[in-house]
Design a protein around this nucleic acid. Structure first.
Lengths: 212, 212
DNA sequence: GTGCGATGTATCGGTCCGATACATCGCGGT
DNA sequence: ACCGCGATGTATCGGACCGATACATCGCAC
């Protein structure tokens, strides 16, 4: 999952680790708290070893006049390679069970503007199915097995059930929008008129593989 | 987290691994999908090594007449020890930052009927604070940094923000109920009259440490 | 001039997951 | 009468990710 997210972000611009973490946190803020460096750096190492990204030490730009002298450990800037872009396209298009879990779905969704519409629909529907199953499980629990659980556990289930129902409704809307070829619109937060009409996702057709 | 959940469940009855997993999944169904055996068995081993639980192989009850002959690998039943109960009480009462994360909070909440009221309040308020901070982060993002993000990411944030707002409201209700000494009541699902008036949590005072 | 918070890179131990393997039991289909 | 197959049941292994920790530099406020 981290691999996908990193590849996706580096496609927008080269970055160093710290910056990458901040962008990651911004983009995935709704999903997970913050990515740990204990995950980030080893993953960057792995991606570099695989050839998906290259790392370049940032030197003082002019020349290496004073190399020693408080050996400045410059920032390491990571850049995605052509193979990395291919890898990203492959990862973003392939959907498995983990694509529909909370984290997996969130990461995929965050890169929907780089995903073709067919895949977007596949993912949204898979997610809906997953949540519907979770919802049914909770409903069963609140029905049949209710007397085995204490009041607090029951309340937790109730709250979880409600969250499931809301998410299914949200997904329905997104799916309807996708089918009609529209951008994701805010459902209506009281003030009429959408948020902004530019920066909409690629109108139906292509999406990935615009030239570097 | 798993440690706490296992100790809590075994306090209700001795169980073998498979059963434990099912109960765990039932009790925490609203929080996480299902506990992996790859976590469960190693944790059980660890708990046993620490002396919090004991494991007893289940033999055929009558006698070991036919010991060989398709060596029946009986189920292993785990039982909590007195030290284990102490450990549970300690874990349930101690609150740290991880208590307020999604998983940590869910597990603690699921055992609220074994938690004293002061601790319940502390946890609910800590959780509220955590969610409020997440909410503020999302609001900032949707305000200041909105133009840097694409429409899909924005929509994800919006949905996350709404979830935060709902959870804060839910927590407010729970906190108010705790303060007034009432059990968690269903907010009103249309049909008047509560679900069931028995099995309410311990009225104000004691809660843990009822004799075995 | 000095402390201190933000920036920045990096490792280590530990928790938990997903895939996999293997064995038994009861039941329905043929 | 037999067979398969899904539920029950125990267990391991590699890998992903986290939290704590360490260490160094920069800019700026006091």
């Amino acid at each position: 999952m981290l691999e996908l997210a990193i590849l996706g972000l580096l496609q927008e611009a080269p970055m160093h680790g710290y910056e990458l973490r901040k962008e990651l946190t911004a983009k995935l803020g709704a999903i997970r708290a913050a990515i740990s460096y204990g995950s980030l750096y080893p993953t960057l190492r792995r991606l570099q070893a695989a050839g998906w990204i290259t790392e370049a030490a940032e030197t003082s730009a002019t020349a290496e006049e004073v190399p020693a002298l408080t050996s400045r450990r410059g920032r390491v800037v990571y850049t995605i390679t052509a193979e990395g872009k291919e890898r990203f396209a492959q990862l973003i298009a392939q959907t498995g069970p983990e694509t529909y879990g909370d984290t997996g779905f969130g990461v995929h969704f965050a890169f929907f503007s780089r995903t073709d519409r067919a895949t977007r629909l596949r993912i949204l529907e898979g997610r809906r199915r997953t949540i519907e199953e979770r919802r049914e499980g909770l409903r069963d629990m609140l029905g049949r097995a209710a007397e085995r659980l204490d009041a607090y556990t029951l309340e937790l289930q109730r709250h979880g059930l409600e969250a499931c129902e809301r998410e299914v409704r949200w997904l329905e809307e997104l799916i309807a929008n996708e089918r009609s070829g529209r951008a994701p619109t805010v459902p209506d937060d009281g003030t009429a008129g959408g948020r902004r009409e530019d920066n909409s996702p690629p109108p139906p057709g292509e999406s990935r593989n615009e030239r570097p």
